[in-house]
Write a protein that binds this DNA or RNA. Sequence first.
DNA 1: GGATTGTTTTGCAGTCACTGCAACTTTGCA
DNA 2: TGCAAAGTTGCAGTGACTGCAAAACAATCC
Lengths: 208, 208
Amino acid sequence: MNQPGESLRDRKKRRTRAALERATVRLAAERGYDHVTVEEIAAEADVSVRTFFNYFASKDEALIGADPEAGPRMAERILAASDEVTPFEAYRQSVLAEITDELNNARDLWLLRKEVLMQRPDLLVRAFANSAESERLLANAVGRRAGLPESDLYPRLLVAAGSAAFRCAVTRWALDDSVALGDLVGDALELFGTGLAHVPPHHHEGGS
Amino acid sequence: MNQPGESLRDRKKRRTRAALERATVRLAAERGYDHVTVEEIAAEADVSVRTFFNYFASKDEALIGADPEAGPRMAERILAASDEVTPFEAYRQSVLAEITDELNNARDLWLLRKEVLMQRPDLLVRAFANSAESERLLANAVGRRAGLPESDLYPRLLVAAGSAAFRCAVTRWALDDSVALGDLVGDALELFGTGLAHVPPHHHEGGS
DNA sequence: GGATTGTTTTGCAGTCACTGCAACTTTGCA
DNA sequence: TGCAAAGTTGCAGTGACTGCAAAACAATCC
C-alpha cells in the first residue's frame, strides 16, 4: 500500500495544507487580513493552531501559500534547458511555466488574494522575503548556466527582476484584470529583457 | 527662539531617533537580530519601550532606519529634472544621489548592518515592504514624467528595478566589499537599463 | 516668572503571532 | 496484532505591537 504516487498520509497532508491556505485567503478577503486570527483560520480548517504552524511558518506565508517545491523545480528546469537558449530565456520560460501552472490550478484563490493585496500591497513584498532561499537557489542555477563567478551581479539581478516582474504584474492586475496575469508577467519580463533605459512605445492595454 | 532651522524639540527628536536606530543596529550586529529584544534596545537608547514604537512601527524598520522623507525627496528630484533626460536617467540619478548621501552620512552604520544582513538576508527584503508607500509615490512621479497612463507597467517596473538593484548590490557587497556599494548599485541600474536579455561581458571585479 | 497650551514620553493592560516540549493519535509495515 | 515513524495537539511561555490616559516637557502669552 505504498504506491510511489501518494500514500494516505501524503494525501491528508496535501489536503490540510490546502485547507489552511484556502481558509486564510477566504477569511482575509472577507474581513480584512488583520481582522483574522490564526485561531480562526485553524478552526475553519478544523485543525489546531499548533498544526497551522506546522504547515506554515507565518500567517503571511499561509496567505501566499508559496509552494516550497517551486524553487527547486524552476532551478531544475533552468539547468535542464537546451544550451541553444540564453540563460535569460531559460529563466523566463521557467518562470512563465510555473506561473501558468499555478494560475490554472488555483485561479479562484488568486481572485480572492487580489482583494487582500489591494488593501495591503506590502504583503506581497513580504511574501518574497520568505523565499530568500529559493532566490539563492535560482540565482545559483542561472549563474552556473551562464558560467559566471559566484560574485557576479547578473544572476542575482535576473532573479530579483523576476520577483519584481511578478510583483508589479500582480499589482497592475489587481487594479484591472482585463489582461491575464500571465501575460502581464510576460510583458514585464520582456521589458526587463530589452532594458528600461527608454520608455517603451506601448504594451497590451485593454484595447485602444 | 523659534528659528526655522530647528527647535530644541526637533533636535531632541532627531537625536532619539538616531539613538534608537544605532542601538538597534549595534546590538543586532553584536548578538544577532533575534537575540535582541525591543526592551533592550529601548534601554540602550534610554527611552521606554513605548517610545521606541512611537518612532518606528516595527523592529525591522528600526534596523533599516529608512528615512521617511527619502521617498518624497526623490520624487521631487525626478519631477524637477531637465526635460532633456529620459525618465530612466532622471530616476537613476535620483537614486544614486540618495544613496551616496546616505552612505556619506552613515557609512559606519552600514558596515554594522552588513553583519546583520549576512545572517538574515530576508530582513532586507522585508525592509522594502515598509516603503510600499514611497514606491507608489516614485512610480507616480516616473509615470507623470514619462506621460504614461496610470495603468502602465513601466513606472512600477522601473521603481521595482531600483529596489532590486539596491537589494542585490547590498547582498553582493556584504559578500565582499572591495567595490563601493554606490558603484555596485550603479552597475546594477546600468544592467537594468540596457536589458538582461544577454549576459553582460563583465563589470567591475576586484581588479583584473 | 507663571499660567496656558500643544507635544512627547511613559506605564499599563491587553491581544496575538509564534516556539519548544511532551503527551497522544494515526498511519505504514511486518 | 503490534511496533515504529510521522503527524497532531495542548500548554506554557516569550516578545512584538496597540490603545489609552496620565505625567513630563517645551513653546507661547501675559
